[in-house]
Design a protein around this nucleic acid. Structure first.
Length: 384
DNA sequence: TGGGATT
């Protein structure tokens, strides 16, 4: 897995002090800058988690030497990951054992030792789409491993069908140049036995989202504010207590975890409470309430919507489907060059009953001079 | 009258 160079170095007992490690920090006389056993990287943090919440959560394990939630330089938006450097290596170990895999909102956080920082490991993360649904993580790693050392990989799966591949994934290489070579070698190529070529490109940061994606998030956040239990929303994160002896993911009496765990997508809604969205409403509401953005998810029931007009946008889908229940994501498929809607889109809803009701009500619905066709998404592959 | 996807 991850080779931590300075770990090997500390095993050399007679090394001179002040040695400069390859790709690593200079070890001082007392060895205090060798943080390979104390410094952790935390991935997949909820978008709206603050530095204070981050520190509070990890400070509950033990004394922190330093910690940093990484943010976009310009927008200040969290990039969804951070670093925690403990004073005691035992606490770092404990943090991995206790907090790795913790579910916060829609995310499952990952806690692991950080690699020594260096310029060459930056921007080495790839986003892969068009993967055959039969391809698993191991297959994908095998395909990419010819270009370099893989640090992490993942294939995204549908939550409802319990593990069916969504045909998209991520590959992080050790070095940026390895990732570049993989793009050159694999983008647009068909994996052995595959019918369609795959797309390989550098992955986005959360901060690199398009305006449209950000707008989608605003709608989502707004939808949740109207459809979720309001008492959670209004007091969220207002108090940051110490977690005391150690975090217990099941103990809901701990306010920070309580808030993070409960602000999930599976909220009930009342059609009569659902507003007519407009970007202006969303905007003012968001800034007044200090609402933070939360990312979309692949979880839920995917609905195919056909016969949208070329002018259709995401707000149309929110307005159509929002009244039926919890909508987690909407997508209008556009032509790459004209940016006009190609006549169809997708809506993801959390609850089956609400999705089924939306389909029953909206299939055949007349929108302007068009009659919509609405159904659960079917897989092309499984069609006769 | 049909398929995106960003941990």
């Amino acid at each position: 897995m991850v080779t931590i160079i300075s770990t090997m170095e500390t095993q050399v007992s007679n090394g001179p002090s002040g040695t400069s490690l390859p790709n690593g920090p200079v070890i001082s006389t007392n060895g205090s800058t060798d943080d390979s056993k104390t410094n952790l990287i935390v991935n997949y943090l909820p978008q709206n988690m603050t530095q204070e919440e981050f520190k509070s959560l990890f400070g509950s394990i033990g004394e922190i030497e330093s910690c940093k939630l990484v943010r976009d330089k310009i927008t200040g938006q969290s990039l969804g990951y951070g670093f925690v450097n403990y004073v005691d290596p035992n606490d770092a170990d404990k943090a991995i054992n206790t907090l790795n895999g913790l579910k916060l909102q829609t995310k499952t956080i990952k806690v692991s030792y950080a690699r020594p920082s260096s310029a060459s490991i930056r921007d080495a993360n790839l986003y892969v789409s068009g993967l055959p649904k039969t391809m698993n993580q191991k297959d994908m790693e095998q395909l990419f491993s010819q270009y370099g050392r893989i640090i992490t990989s993942r294939i995204l799966v549908d939550q409802v069908t319990a593990g069916i591949s969504r045909g998209v994934g991520f590959i992080r290489f050790d070095k940026r140049n390895e990732a570049e070579e993989a793009i050159k070698g694999l983008n647009g190529q068909k994996p052995l036995g595959a019918a369609e070529p795959i797309t390989v490109k550098f992955a986005n940061n959360p901060s690199q989202k398009t305006g449209q994606a950000l707008l989608t998030q605003l709608y989502q956040t707004a939808a949740r504010r109207y459809t979720g239990p309001l008492h959670h929303q209004t007091q969220r994160f207002s108090m940051i207590p110490s977690l005391g002896k150690g975090p217990d993911p099941n103990n809901s009496s701990k306010p920070i975890l309580d808030n993070l765990l409960n602000a999930s997508y599976g909220v009930k809604s009342s059609p009569t409470l659902f507003p007519r969205f407009s970007p202006i409403t969303i905007d003012s509401m968001t800034s007044l309430a200090g609402v933070n953005l939360t990312g979309p998810t692949g979880a839920g029931w995917c609905i195919f919507v056909y016969n949208l007009s070329p002018e259709a946008d995401e707000s149309v889908l929110w307005q159509l489907f929002g009244p039926f229940g919890a909508v987690t994501n909407v997508k209008v498929i556009r032509d790459f060059t004209t940016n006009k809607c190609k006549g169809f889109g997708f809506v993801t809803m959390t609850n089956y009953d609400e999705a089924a009701m939306a389909i029953a009500s909206l299939n055949g619905y007349r929108l302007g001079d068009r009659v919509l066709q609405v159904s659960f998404k079917t897989s092309k592959q499984h069609k006769a």
